[in-house]
Each structure stands twice: as C-alpha cells, then as structure tokens.
Design a protein around this nucleic acid. Structure first.
Lengths: 343, 343
DNA sequence: TTGAAAGCGCTAACAC
DNA sequence: GTGTTAGCGCTTTCAA
C-alpha cells in the first residue's frame, strides 16, 4: 500500500508550511483567501484527508464518547441510544457503545483509571452491577453522566425521572380502578437495586396515602427487567392461589411477560387482572392488549445527558454535579381500562 | 492536571530503555525474567498505563471495529449487536456503533475514503440506503463485511440467510394451512429494496410450485419494516374489502403491527387471518398471539461476521469475498396454528 | 536480550 | 498571516 498523503505533502505542493495547511483544514481564522484557495486546491489534487489517529494524539482527545448500558436489546435502552447517537453526532462526536450485561467488573473497567481511558472523552453510563460506593471510586478526571438511579455525589451529573413519584402515580391509577389486591413485580432488595427500590417505595406510598395496608407477599422480586422474568414472576404469583387483581410491573417488558402468563392461564386482562408497566416502549403500543405505562421523556434524557457531558468535557473546571429530573407521564391503555369494543 | 506517567518514566525508574518496557507491557517474548520483574515493579509504583491514542498512531490501527445499522431500536439489530459486541470484545476489539436511519449519504460516509476512515480497522455494515453500485464505489482498502442482502462482488464478505428459500418456506406454511388468499406485506420494488424483493420472490415461488396464481394486489409495499408500517399496510388491505385469509410479513415487527390492526377490527388471528413474520425477535415469543416466524441463527451471523472481519483486518493479502449462508428455521406459533386451549 | 533513535502525522507555542 | 519546530507517547528498525 502506498504511503498516505500527509499534511506536509500538501504544504509542499501548495508552497506553504504545514502549520498553514493545518489552519486551513481545521477552518481556523487567520488565513488569507488566496492561501486558503491554494491549499484547498493542493488538498484536492492530492486527495488528502487528515489522520484522525494523529490528531487524537496531538490533541490528547479522541472525539468519542462512550455510552455504557447493561443490555442493548432492552428496547428502553435502544430507544434511548438512538437519541444519544443523534445528539452526539450533531456535536461532532462518535459514540462508542458497550453493554456490560450488568457485570460489575466490566462496568468498573469503564470508569476506572484504566488503559482504555483515553479512548473516550467522557462516558454516559447506566450502571447495574455497581453500587454507589463502587461508583465513587473512579477516575475523578473522567467526565461522567449517570442514567437511572444513582444519586449524584456532586462529581457527576445524574439524569433520570422521579421514580418514586412515577411509581406512586402508576399504583394510584390501579387503586383508582377499584382494585384492592395490587401486586408489584420487579423489586430488587439489594445494594445495586436502587431503581427498583424507589419504585417499591412509590408503590408503598400510594397505599399508605390512602390508608391501605400492603400485602408484603404481593411484592415479587425479579433478577432482570425482561419478559422471561416477568412471565415467571407472574406464574409464581398465580400458582399461590388468591391471585392479585392488579399488577404494577417495573418495566414494560416485565408487564408483557406477565400478561403473557395471565392470558396463557385463561385469565383476562384487565377484567381479571389489570397490568401497568414502566418505560413506554413501542411494544406496549401495539401489543394485545396495549399496555398502560409510565412514559419518561427519553428524548429529553438523551439530549440532556449529551449536553451535560459535552459541557463537562469542554470545561477545565468541572461544573457541579447536577440532579436532573426528566418529565414523565402516565399513559393509560387497554391493559388497565380495557378496550371500547373488541371481541 | 499533572503530567501522565509515560513509558519513558517507567524506563528511567527501572533503569532500562523504553523499548524494553514496551516489550514487557505488550507481553513480547524476549525479556529476561529479572528485567521483566523490575519493569513490572516500576509500572506499578508509578501507576503507569499505556496511552491508547499514542499506540494507535504508532501502529496505524485503532483497535476498533464499526458496526453500522440503519436502526438501533429494531430488535433484530439490537439482538444481533449484542452478539457482535461480545464476539468483538473477546478478540480485544471495541465496537463503535452507528445508525444511519437508512440515509444513503450517511452510509457512504462509513465506507468511503473519508477522514473517519482510520477510526476503525474494519466495518460490519447493514446497508439500507445504498444500492449495489454505490457499495462498489468505496475505499478498497477497508475490510468490510456486509449483513443483509447485497451480493458480494468478491471484495467483501456477505453474511445472511437464504431469503428466497426462507420466504418460500414461510409462504408454504400458510398454504399448507389451507389458506388461499395469501397476502405479502413488505415489498420494496426499488434499487435498495433487494432484501424485500428476495422475499417477494420466495413468496411467488411457493405459489407457482403449487400451480397457484398470485393476486398481485395482495402484495403490499412498506417503506420500513416496523410496527406502524405493518399496521398501516394491514389497514389498507382490510379497507379494500375481500380480505386475505393469511399474511406473510417481511419482519416480525410488521407482523405485530398487522396483528394489532386485525384485532382492532374485531377479526381473529389465526381463525380469520393467519399471520407469519420474519426474524424471530423476542417480542413474538411473548405477544398475544405468539408469532410464527422465520428464525435466522443470529449468533451464527454475528460471530461469523466478526470472525471474517478480523481475518480481513489481519491479512495483508485480502481473502476472497465469501457468500456465507446462516442457518434458519421455521418456527410455528399461535399466529398461524392457534392455541390448544385458551379462552 | 537490550539500547538508541527514527518515525507515526498532526497540533500549537513561539517567533517573525 | 505564516513559518519553524518541538512535542504528543508509543512502536519498531537497526545495531550492539
């Protein structure tokens, strides 16, 4: 393979210094129109294109941001990623994506002072395996934005919705329907299950606010927020007899899994059991029945996360870590109120 | 910020040359056990970690591969990406992901001799907006593996399933059920719609093989393979009167959209209209009804694509472009055969 | 087995 | 406004 055309080659042909060529290529100010044109012509004649790798080294930055999520095939994340990629691209950043499968070691590798560190100028991170303490122990120089539920310690931004309020709202919707035995599927009562615990808290608050007691055995845990776990949890619930008449699921996938089980058992949704989910993924808008849900403003989350991260990357004195609350709303569909007319 | 620890610092402390440190860090052979230890100690003492950016420049490679898909939130792609990332990681590669929204210009940017070229050592690419001709006009030095339907011109590998055979199989399944008015949703009769056209071809072959004629008006086009387009196409079909009794959808998402419409109209699946999809995404395994489908071996596709790409990246004389056929199978679920017992 | 030193191609401080 | 030049930190050829 023949040698690549370099800045110096262009400089030589144009009869200027490489410094000037660099200026032209990067669109810096101080260049005469005449020189610019000469350089431009040389660039085209030689088919020159800058070497990103060299530029990265010289600038000490990579022009990439990493987005780290536990699972790529979770619609909530893939929908979010779409918006993140678009937002990043607008600002000239490439997006390096990785999924961690919730593995703590792997997650640590992204925020630690490791050898991959220079590969990205900042990280948008949705932790699953790492608890709050592990998060604190990271490369302090790494611009970081956290998604999901890990309260900021002031050194990074945190973007998410108000999980407690949203969960309370979802539960209240079920109670408003006149349901009395409301179950919750998705609790994770351990250090890394903060998001789940906040939802459980909202679930509780909805009850206590109305003076209702909670049947603790109706709070079911799941390892993941996916369809299979939702289906399994629901099966457990039904196997016990004395089934609930409504279920608050901690994600739409869990809800879809739960609905699958309910229907397979010959029960009806919502007549026998009303179901509400969380996330508002597209699936729930086309499923049968369609799924009532809490809808976080994903576009807001994505653009805000990118915006804050770029701000961090750009500033020499790191801005204070913010708690950013995305808007959310309750969306009522068939899985709680049924359909007007359908067989 | 204090200066980073460099190779030279380590060399100085260990009393060796930077060359030796490099050897140790990279695990190269020729180093005495004693020197290795001394260097190792110095590395730890100083907290040295190599600078990827510098290494990239020196080696002229980035250690990254790009995976370019039209839409990230399409479950088929996100499921595939999962496996690709895992496979790439095992070989020490990072994965840069981008979505093109099917935009031809954007897609071209990835395979052209552009300035981003050096950012990745190779590309796994699922084109949507680019036709065969545009594909041929690319940086010939770029290691490339194509997913989906773009026959290889010998300069890249192509991984996909036998779309014609699979589509024929899906259609035959519907005909086997005794259905006579079978519709097809998803045709794309233009240059970039090759995948769709192959499926239409399989659809036709199934009919002609049995001496059945095809109602051309039952072949419906869609711009994308997603739920909304599937729902819309089905609505069009039903609005015309004389509805089909079975539908072959070119993706599971299209099928889910179509089913949504059918049920909303008060018709039953499969009693009134049987539906089969394509891709075998998780949604179809939990939906109501569950969706019969063509299941490509995604794991095979992902690992094969990565394997071939790394082979290309590693060899100075590019290997011949291969046509690689992944296994697939027909999966029968409720949307075509109904359920044994459910209300 | 190890050392010296020449790049890799670009950026940017400094001089003119 | 433009040129000179010293890095950026690592890899790797060549010589010892």
């Amino acid at each position: 393979m023949r040698r690549e055309v370099t800045l110096r080659d262009v400089a030589e042909l144009a009869g200027v210094s490489s410094r000037t060529v660099s200026n032209v290529v990067n669109g810096y100010a101080n260049v005469t129109e005449r020189t610019r044109e000469r350089v431009q012509r040389a660039v085209e004649e030689l088919g020159y294109r800058p070497n990103v790798l060299a530029r990265n080294l010289a600038q000490g930055r990579s022009g990439q941001i990493a987005v780290v999520v536990p699972y790529l095939d979770t619609p909530y994340f893939s929908e979010l990623l779409q918006s993140v990629i678009r937002a990043a691209r607008i600002s000239g950043y490439n997006v390096l994506i990785d999924q961690t499968d919730g593995d703590a070691e792997h997650e640590r590798g992204f925020i630690a002072h490791g050898s991959r560190r220079l590969l990205f100028d900042g990280v948008i991170f949705s932790p699953l395996g790492l608890d709050q303490r592990a998060l604190a122990d990271r490369d302090p120089a790494l611009p970081l934005v956290i998604l999901g539920e890990r309260a900021s310690d002031g050194s990074f931004d945190h973007v998410g919705i108000d999980d407690v309020a949203a969960s309370r709202q979802a539960t209240e919707h079920l109670l408003d329907l006149g349901r009395h035995r409301v179950a919750a599927i998705g609790d994770q009562p351990y250090a890394t299950g903060e998001a789940a615990q906040l939802r459980t808290q909202g679930f509780r608050e909805a009850h206590t606010a109305r003076g209702l007691s909670i049947r603790e055995d109706l709070i079911i845990g799941t390892a993941r927020f996916n369809r299979p776990d939702g289906a399994r949890a629901m099966a457990d619930l039904l196997d016990r007899g004395d089934p609930p008449d409504a279920v608050f699921c901690y994600s739409d996938l869990v809800a879809l899994g739960a609905i699958h089980t309910i229907l397979a058992r010959g029960l009806r949704v919502p007549e026998d059991i009303a179901v509400i989910g969380y996330d508002d993924i597209e699936d729930g808008r086309y499923s049968n029945p369609t799924v009532s849900t809490i809808s976080p403003d994903k576009e807001w989350i994505a653009t805000t996360a990118v915006e804050r991260l770029l701000l961090r990357i750009g500033s020499s004195t790191p801005p204070p870590g913010l708690e950013l609350r995305a808007p959310h709303k309750l969306i009522v569909r068939e899985s709680t109120t049924g359909r007007a007319s359908r067989p």
